[in-house]
Design a binder for these strands. Structure first.
Lengths: 248, 248
DNA sequence: CGCATCCTTATGTCCTAACATATGAGCCTG
DNA sequence: CAGGCTCATATGTTAGGACATAAGGATGCG
């Protein structure tokens, strides 16, 4: 029968510090990603799964739930558990433009237009949650993809966390921050559009008044501290944002 | 002492069909949102919470976990559970423009410019995963906020799921779909920008060549079926997208 | 007085055990 | 044979208990 429940081959290491449910989730995830569990395939029910692997039902359940949260499995009461249809099965991650470009096979380069230290404007001070008049590092850069201008990026950071001009290097701000031990955990961003100013058009080597995508972002670390605030513009003809949304 | 664990006042309805853990999660969420549990405030530990409310520890745990997933609580082993720092504490939800506007206190209205049935274009057929030449319902609408034009929306749906012209009504497409029992679960969208065409500018009552935000979205139900594909344009001067991203 | 160690605390992991309920298939009746 | 009903199935909810482990403070020793 084609609708025999799939049996995943799993080896659990009970002496490992990584939780059993996570080991199991990872194993099933791997089976889905390698295609040995194709979309639509029915899994054995959680009781059988638990029994076979000699774990408790809650443990098996939790593994399955983990994959449902990732969008890789679909469960229906009274019916069973199925591998979700193809689509995206990864959480929307906080990717940097640099990594994005690299992943899509383009060759990103960056040059720094400005690196300065000065008291922050009211807007920046508020976004970074700093005391009034505090000094702020401002970085302006232009990013090119395969040699063609793509975006103008302006970032503001508190002095304590800002990478030096040298550390900034080629590979992007978030990469430099990570090397300083600062991990971005969450960000707010607002995406809009407007017409380019004369100087923006000149820098981007475009005719005046081209359409720009604008993005304003404030990024926070795991403890909730504001790390970075940036205002960026992208050439709309060469870049767009892709996102995946889930209903609550 | 200022660091006494907070005690949330909760009433659980054990005869309700909504799960205890969700009742509890909602109650705590409400306490946080109304400010009676301020950011940083420590909660009583989960054992005490469970005992006080006469629920099992797993139930209390699950409620707390739900709020951790929403980013409203932070837990640390050996330390306790705290209300997360201010920020956003809502998942990025798949909100409809209509609901967005209503929540922000503006008054949205919609008028239907076109409602037609015809064989879909190649792009639409592919997005909706329909057989070639299949009939598709096309809906074009203009949305106003407080009487001023804001967006032009074009949606394509398969005949079987499309709301009728009458069902479409005032309150938005997703609302109409929900009333037909179709739940949107996930969507892919791509956000870009461009200059308005002459006819777009006319419909939006704007001068020619204003900046527009563009959005292309394909929405899916829980089973992964493509439900709706839309191409929308927004007046950039009146609208922007806000999102919250989390690192993986 | 500084430093290492122990101990308390609270969450993390894992188990067994019921009962509730949505779904779909098959049976049974009119 | 059509339509309603029953029942098996699989997931959803809840309970109660045991042990592991990270964090931070208290303790005691050099």
């Amino acid at each position: 029968m084609a609708d025999d429940p799939a049996v995943v081959r799993v080896e659990l290491d009970r002496s490992s510090p990584v939780p059993l449910y996570h080991q199991l989730a990872t194993a099933i995830e791997h089976a889905i990603e390698t295609g040995s569990l194709p979309p639509g395939r029915r899994l054995e029910n959680e009781i059988a799964l638990a029994k076979r692997l000699r774990v408790s039902r809650p443990t098996a359940r939790r593994a399955l739930q983990e994959l449902v949260d990732l969008g890789m499995l679909v469960r229906k009461r009274g019916v069973g558990t199925q591998v979700a249809p193809v689509r995206v099965r990864r959480k929307v991650d906080l990717s940097s433009l640099y990594d994005d470009l690299q992943r899509s096979g383009r060759h990103p380069t960056t040059s720094v237009l400005e690196y300065s230290v000065a008291p922050g404007t009211a807007e920046v001070i508020e976004a970074l949650e700093l005391p009034a008049e505090a000094d702020v590092v401002t970085i302006r850069r232009i990013r090119l993809a395969d040699g063609e201008p793509l975006a103008l990026m302006t970032n503001h950071l508190a002095l304590e966390v800002a990478p030096s001009y040298e550390e900034l290097g080629e590979s992007g701000l978030y990469h430099a921050l990570r090397q300083r031990g600062v991990e971005i955990h969450m960000a707010h961003q607002q995406i809009g559009a407007r017409i380019a100013t004369a100087s923006e058009a000149r820098l981007l080597e475009e005719k005046p008044k081209v359409a720009l995508l604008t993005m304003e972002r404030t990024a926070y670390d795991a403890a909730g501290r504001a790390i970075e605030h940036g205002q960026h513009v992208y050439l709309a003809s060469r870049y767009s944002f892709s996102t995946t949304l889930f209903a609550s």
